[in-house]
Amino acid sequence: MGDFTTEELLAIFAMQGFAGLSLFSVLLLMALGLAIIYGQMRVINMAHGEFMVIGAYTTYFISTLVVSQAPWFLDYYVFIAVPAAFLMAFIVGWIVEAVLIRHLYHRPLDTLLATWGLALIMQQAFRSIFGAREVSVRLPSWLQGSYQPTLMIDIPINGIAIMVLTLFVTAGVAWMMYRSRWGLRVRCTVSNREMSGAVGINTRSVDRLTFAVGCGIAGIAGAAFTTISSTGPTSGALYIVDTFLVVVFGGAGSLLGTMASAFSIAQGQSILEFFISGSMAKVLTLLVVIGILMLRPEGLFASKVRR
């Protein structure tokens, strides 16, 4: 790092830090969905990345449609695309639960294999429908460009937009979890499934809705993802490992832990990437995470309430 002045270093940290915040946002949304599903039914959804890609392709589809049919709408289409991405991933998630996952509860290894197989099938489906080449969306003009607080620092607007979106979604999920009837059902089931049934909760239908919501949130992550990167059939696979890392590191079942862990992993990678190669940055992050997990196997924030 000796070749940089202090001022340059600060600017690099600020900018890479901000690039890290976009990554943080996508990872957090992904991890939220994955953690909700895991917490509710102990299913590790290996196809979670592909649900993100569904959201990304939905956004891409709407953007191309708008570009060719209604160019005047270009500035506003993202407000349709985000709910549409949620809805598409939600619907596919609903169907997948009904057709596949439902039959595999109590068989964790089988769900792992089945959802992995599902991921491959979905990737092939993307390839057949959208082609093997990566596609990108036309961003509305107000999402392009950047904000320059000083001469050296340069913060992209789309990064800010993703963060705001993530903030809203996270707050929405927290609200749903702690204030809605669905959230109460989920928390009961997570706490004691048998007893939830015995107080009248239909845990099977809670499972289905929860799986679909988790997938839907991945869909929103996909919509966010299209603004920082291009989408290909295997884009989901690139994110799934980091997402697992976030969930395990944060301690499954803790919203605060998930946020803290998404933040540190995204920031760590992003800042390191500037100084060493991307894969070295990944290796280093992984080593640190493993080190911390050896000290705290329950994750960063294990739940403190007695059970």
Binding site: L184, R187, C188, S191, N192, M195, A198, S303, V305, R306, R307
Partner: peptide
């Protein structure tokens, strides 16, 4: 139930 089985985290 025996042992009450309330939801402790709620």
């Amino acid at each position: 139930p025996q042992g009450r089985m309330i939801f402790p985290t709620l």
